[in-house]
């Protein structure tokens, strides 16, 4: 389903569901992992239940199949950190793409009974929804995302405080354009690594940021208001080189710190981002 079609679907929750279900349909095996470890009770075996959950001791005693049921509890805390700064508002589809991705991730985490939380930041933490695996929490996240409007500057220094708050280890997913100095990005995300969180960084870029195009004009920074006269016709190739250098540096430094990095252009399908996420999730308990 294309981003354009998705954007026409107003309720974000429905949008997220469509994304996720479409994505799951395409997979060959179940993406669900884990389940709780706290035993709750037994129930009789029904065809289709996984054999590994059959309690063989009960079978030995009763000669009947029973499967074990566990306490409904999450096994992973996930923090979706969305960049809500003004730069994300560049071209409408960029923030929309990020928002959809955040929603889809929240939804898929919910389906996995993982606890998903949402943090929206600019120069400070704007929204912080603690991770929970409840439906209410998901609704809260969706509603928050739906009403979110980008603004303010990007500043990752608030991540330090945020990292300190996240006591329990979990998965941190950063969705941002990462238009910052690479050092700032690394130092911001390193706080989570110090806390032993797994970190997944999604950089979202608009095609118009990659190929600026058009005649010479003055470009005004969406966050700082700074103005730069620039001739895209003459300087396109140099710009691409500089942008690639910037991306490459972020990627290299993040990987050095054990942070997975993925770059998405808004023209890329969202499923690709989800797939990356699932691959990461597989490695986690």
């Amino acid at each position: 389903m294309t981003t354009e079609i998705l954007s026409r679907i107003k309720p974000l929750r429905l949008r997220a569901r469509l994304i996720v279900e479409g994505f799951l349909t395409g997979l060959h095996r179940s993406p669900y992992h884990g389940f709780s470890v706290e035993f709750k009770d037994h129930r009789s075996y029904n065809p289709g239940d996984e054999i590994r959950w059959i309690d063989w001791k009960v079978y030995a005693r009763t000669d009947r199949f029973f499967v074990r049921r566990f306490e409904d509890e999450t096994n992973l805390l996930s923090y979706i950190i969305l960049d809500g700064s003004s730069s994300m508002a560049f071209s409408d589809e960029k923030f929309e793409y990020a928002r959809n991705l955040a929603a889809a991730l929240a939804y898929i985490l919910y389906l996995q009974r993982d606890a998903a939380g949402l943090v929206v930041f600019n120069e400070k933490i704007v929204v912080q929804i603690p991770p929970r695996a409840s439906r209410i929490n998901l609704s809260h996240i969706m509603k928050t995302l739906e009403n979110l409007k980008p603004g303010g500057k990007t500043d990752l220094s608030s991540f330090k405080l945020l990292a300190e708050k996240l006591k329990k280890r979990g998965l941190v997913i950063l969705i941002s354009d990462m238009f910052l100095d690479p050092e700032e990005v690394i130092s911001g995300l390193k706080f989570f690594r110090y806390r032993k969180h797994e970190v997944l960084a999604f950089q979202i870029l608009s095609p118009r940021e990659i190929n600026i195009g058009g005649h010479a004009r003055v470009f005004e920074d969406m966050e700082t208001g700074e103005k730069v006269p620039f001739d895209p016709i003459n300087l396109q190739s140099e710009y691409r080189k500089t942008l690639d250098k910037h991306i490459e540096k972020i990627k290299r430094e993040l990987r050095k710190s054990g942070i997975d990095y993925e770059k998405f252009v808004t023209s890329d399908p969202l499923e690709l981002a989800l797939f990356r996420f699932m691959k990461k999730r597989e490695k986690l308990p």
Partner: peptide
Amino acid sequence: SKLQKKSPFPWVKLLFDVKRE
């Protein structure tokens, strides 16, 4: 440059870097 049309851009530092080169 003053007469030129203004366009918003997410991070003009990139453009600065290009121009510097």
